[in-house]
Design a protein around this nucleic acid. Structure first.
Ligand SMILES: [Mn+2]
Ligand SMILES: [Mn+2]
Ligand SMILES: [Zn+2]
Ligand SMILES: [Zn+2]
Lengths: 136, 136
DNA sequence: CATACATTTGCAACAATGTATCAGTTGAGC
DNA sequence: GCTCAACTGATACATTGTTGCAAATGTATG
């Protein structure tokens, strides 16, 4: 599906920033931060618009957020081409040195049974440390 | 162990802010944020000093950080009285509405086997959603 | 106990991230 | 093409965290 179709399918208005953001996420197919997207798209939209767009797209179930660290949030499509859905799916590794976020597809996250009354919305499993490049 | 002993044992200089912070963490025995500690300790130290102290105490292995969310970091003693050690130990639940962080002691975190070369330093399992109070 | 030196602190300035308000623009449906 | 709700950009603000440097403090030594 192209960005326009995705937006229509989720009943979200088609706007220039939203289309551009979805397109960029599709092309890279990896978690991207505000900075990453800014590098790709330049001054296509205001920072305020960015945050509002990400909120809208998250609420609509088109993307989801990964909190890699208190100072780094990344965003991914829920339905990427090569099946990179994921939500409480796999572990993410965050390298404290090179600041890279790596999807550990092979490390699946177990389902946790919350006590009665609690409602789960998202689940992040973040392992922080040094990646194989930086650990030398 | 009292704060002074802990600091001495880890070969960290004994200073007023560090002692006060450890003391507060011991008394509450629950994860506290910068704001929580500020409420307890007032203007005992500057904000800059706080961040530097937490870095030092973390490096020394006296406390550890829990990243509840990109805008909320909490700190806990590694060696609390009633055995609340925890590191890759149990799941933390973060209520997106009342902003409470709850230790799910009964939900243990599995050990993940990282690929060769990767070095784990910390592991957070954060489930976000609504707590039983807010989910009504 | 006094001194000396390294460590730590407070202050000021800055950077990054995120939110609120509001006037002006845009887009989907008719 | 109109219309009106939805969205955007600009500005201003809040919070969290960092950096540089002079002044204060803590520990080790004599
Ligand atoms: Mn992933
Ligand atoms: Mn806990
Ligand atoms: Zn790395
Ligand atoms: Zn709650």
């Amino acid at each position: 599906m192209n960005p326009s179709e995705i937006l229509f399918h989720h009943q979200v208005k088609k706007t220039t920033p939203r289309v551009a953001i979805i397109q960029a996420l599709q092309q890279r197919c990896t978690p991207l931060s505000e900075g990453d997207l800014k590098d790709l798209l330049g001054d296509l939209y205001d920072r305020t618009t960015f945050y509002r767009s990400m909120q809208t797209l998250t609420d609509a179930g088109i993307i989801h957020r990964i909190v890699a660290d208190n100072v780094l949030v990344k965003y991914v499509l829920n339905d990427c081409e090569h099946g990179h859905h994921h939500q409480p799916d796999h572990v993410h590794f965050y390298c404290q040195q090179c600041k890279d976020l790596i999807c550990m597809e092979e490390l699946k996250v177990q389902a946790y049974q919350l006590p009665d009354g609690f409602k789960e919305q998202t689940c992040d499993v973040i392992i922080r440390g040094l990646c194989s490049n930086c650990n030398k």
